[in-house]
């Protein structure tokens, strides 16, 4: 498999740095506003994009992403809007994955979802509540569509299970830095570094760290041991708090540029 995501991770590695991966839910702050945010992220040093499929029952997400998902759902975001956003991001030059809870995929049709991702230029899908035991149909659909499957690994994942999960990952392995839900934290748990080291004993696939990263300093720390640094809630918080879209976009750009420096300072 050789997706745009695979290629950007190889490129970052060749530059001896981590890749910066930004998260934004489709349809947030609005269907069109989301595209403007993506454009800004693409122009501010972000290497790859995660587009969230907003879901009614996001058990892995903290209050910030829940609020953004609610706004997006109220605006009527569904599968069509998610794929439209993937296409836009791909055309803006960003390797793009979708992060979605499982039920929207199942409802859309497992094979159809994988195909539609590929057709719109998407590189892969992160499935935070799909366990490997339930993933057989999905693996087969994504293999035929030629897209990456990214599963999440947690600090609590047992030794004997870790290799089974990472063996199912392509593109990258998503390492959850801590036991908890999404949201900016003031400190990044030391467990993240240990987890990444444990993951590397099982696989050559790149490892990206998510949950809690919001500053250049944290990005620098994580870039010291991971291949990718994922930032979501920090961008969303800016957009939720900004008085107007222009201010929000400006601050998103500033943060992205800072984080892009951070991922280059880690090694």
């Amino acid at each position: 498999m050789n997706t745009p995501l695979d290629r950007v991770l190889v490129k970052a590695k060749s530059e001896n740095r981590a890749a910066l991966i930004a998260y934004i839910p489709a349809g947030f702050p609005s269907i069109e506003g989301c595209k403007r945010v993506i454009k800004v992220l693409a122009d501010s040093g972000v290497d790859a994009l995660e587009i969230g499929f907003p879901y009614s029952d996001p058990v892995m997400d903290g209050p910030t992403i829940q609020e953004a998902a609610d706004i997006s759902l109220r605006a009527g975001t569904g599968a069509a809007e998610v794929f439209e956003t993937v296409k836009f991001a791909h055309e803006a030059g960003l390797p793009t994955v979708v992060m979605t809870y499982w039920n929207p995929i199942e409802k859309f049709g497992v094979e159809a979802f994988a195909k539609e991702m590929a057709r719109n230029g998407g590189s892969g899908v992160i499935t935070p509540d799909l366990t490997i035991e339930e993933s057989r149909e999905w693996k087969s659909a994504t293999t035929s569509a030629g897209i990456n499957t990214i599963f999440v690994v947690a600090p609590s994942t047992a030794e004997k299970r870790l290799g089974d999960v990472t063996a199912q990952c392509s593109g990258f392995v998503y390492a959850a830095s801590l036991m908890g839900v999404t949201g900016a934290r003031t400190t990044i748990s030391s467990g993240a570094k240990d987890l990444v080291a444990r993951i590397r004993t099982t696989t050559q696939t790149p490892v990206a760290v998510g949950l809690g990263v919001s500053t250049r300093e944290q990005a620098k720390d994580v870039a010291g041991f991971a291949d990718g640094v994922i930032v979501g809630s920090a961008f969303i918080k800016i957009l939720l708090n900004a008085g107007d879209e222009e201010t929000g976009l400006k601050e998103v750009s500033e943060l992205a540029r800072e984080l892009a420096l951070g991922v280059r300072e880690g090694r």
Partner: peptide, 19 residues
């Protein structure tokens, strides 16, 4: 692993599998 025909199973964050 808790399947009743096509139903049941586990669709949860990996963090909960251990528990």
């Amino acid at each position: 692993i808790g399947h009743f025909g096509p139903y049941g199973g586990r669709f949860v964050p990996e963090a909960l599998i251990g528990a």
